[in-house]
Design a binder for these strands. Sequence first.
DNA 1: GCCCAGGGGGCTC
DNA 2: GAGCCCCATGGG
Length: 226
Amino acid sequence: MKKKLLSIYEKLYKAFGPRNWWPGDSPFEVMVGAILTQSTAWGNVEKAIKNLKNEKMLSPAKLRNIKLGRLKSLIKPAGFYNVKAKRLKHFLSYLFGTYQNNIDKLKKKNLYRLRKELLALNGVGKETADSIMLYALNKPIFVIDAYTRRIFSRHGLTDKNADYDSLQKLFMDNLPNKYKLFNEYHALIVELGKTFCKSKKPLCNICPLKFDLPICPTCGIFKHGG
DNA sequence: GCCCAGGGGGCTC
DNA sequence: GAGCCCCATGGG
């Protein structure tokens, strides 16, 4: 499994190159983006972040004090704006309440204690918590998402119904414990998913992940040409 | 018009 | 613990 996971990583890296994740000018912007991107295309999140920046509201202090209605209207392009505005507010009150808005304190916190705290916040689930820790705080934790589950189960490497924690354990038990590797690997999986793993329009002929299987391991449907 | 996006919470059984 | 439904905008 160790060799397979690294082999897939190498193929993806060769196909797509470094992804330079997470796009954002600061750890705080990454945290905000992690909440805004829940079940949302990144392009829509960018519009919301741009709105916040244009109004000079993309700072912990500003977002902590902004009126909920104003926040909703600024993040509207990202969708689910009613729930996401509340989620951002919850996160901000945690950031100030527990850490006095000191990101370094968050970084120094034990990884699993911090994860537990984040998961206790309304609106922060496993993927969001892990994204914040990996991409904003550079902590070595592997992020699992729908693409990861889809692609690796279609490759026969994982169970289709495997839960988040067991998938995360699989990656973390079989890869070097390096945040940069976890960062790049997840970003590459997302790139593969966005490009080739749409349920209706897979482009298997140019899928970079070709194994000796009768069906395309990525989309699970079409045969590769010989 | 349809499907989906870098999820999470709440409810039911 | 699994299965639903809701949240909502915007691109292909």
